[in-house]
């Protein structure tokens, strides 16, 4: 008999996971893997570490399914907060491994100029993002890339909406400053 997990909500899937339903878990992974991996990748700055964090996040979802309280928060917010906490722990363990823009090989000699320039910009912006304090970076990533509402992002980080706005404003200001110091052409007249 086919399982009724095709259009099931996250909350309903979690109820099934609590009972040990592997198919519901697979459905949940398929639904959130991309977004969560992107989130971890942007916080950590690389895909390999993001793989480990995302894997650990989903294992926690499985083992802690009974702790999920649907009325307290949206499932994706809970999921992001688990990933965020794991990323913070990872950073604490792995302190010092930050990307320095001066260490990055910006130009590969075998690429066409336009493509190289595009890549240069991407590398510079990525490096600038990694230079932000973790809290500012997370706030920007949640609202800019994950398209979370201010309420959801604030819940994920466990802070108020005004604190979230303050983090994002300071983060964006710092980003502009870093990028302007790298290359004035990049930002034009800010």
């Amino acid at each position: 008999m086919p399982r009724k997990t095709v259009n099931t909500s996250d909350d309903a899937l979690m109820q099934q996971i609590r009972l040990g339903d592997h198919h519901a878990f697979a459905k949940l992974v398929d639904r959130h893997l991309n977004a969560l991996h992107g989130f971890a990748q942007r916080i950590l700055g690389n895909s390999a570490d993001a793989d480990d964090i995302v894997q650990e996040t989903f294992l926690r979802v499985w083992h802690k399914a009974s702790q999920w309280q649907p009325k307290q928060a949206k499932f994706s917010t809970w999921l992001h907060s688990i990933t965020h906490n794991l990323c913070i722990d990872f950073h604490r363990r792995d302190k010092g491994k930050t990307v320095d823009i001066t260490d990055v090989e910006l130009i590969s000699p075998h690429q066409p100029t336009d493509s190289r320039q595009q890549e240069d910009v991407a590398v510079q912006v990525e490096a600038a993002l990694q230079q932000l304090p973790e809290s500012q970076r997370s706030a920007i990533i949640l609202c800019h890339y994950q398209y979370m509402s201010n309420r959801e992002a604030a819940e994920t980080l466990g802070i108020s909406i005004s604190a979230l706005e303050s983090l994002m404003a300071r983060g964006r200001r710092k980003l502009k400053k870093i990028l302007q110091s790298q290359s004035a052409d990049l930002l034009g007249d800010f």
Partner: peptide, 22 residues
């Protein structure tokens, strides 16, 4: 600044990762 932020590429998770988790 938004446009610059949008230029950061992101690699998608592999099927191997998905299968490994399951």
């Amino acid at each position: 600044l938004d446009n610059l932020l949008n230029r950061i590429p992101i690699s998608s998770p592999t099927t191997a990762l998905r299968n490994h988790i399951i």
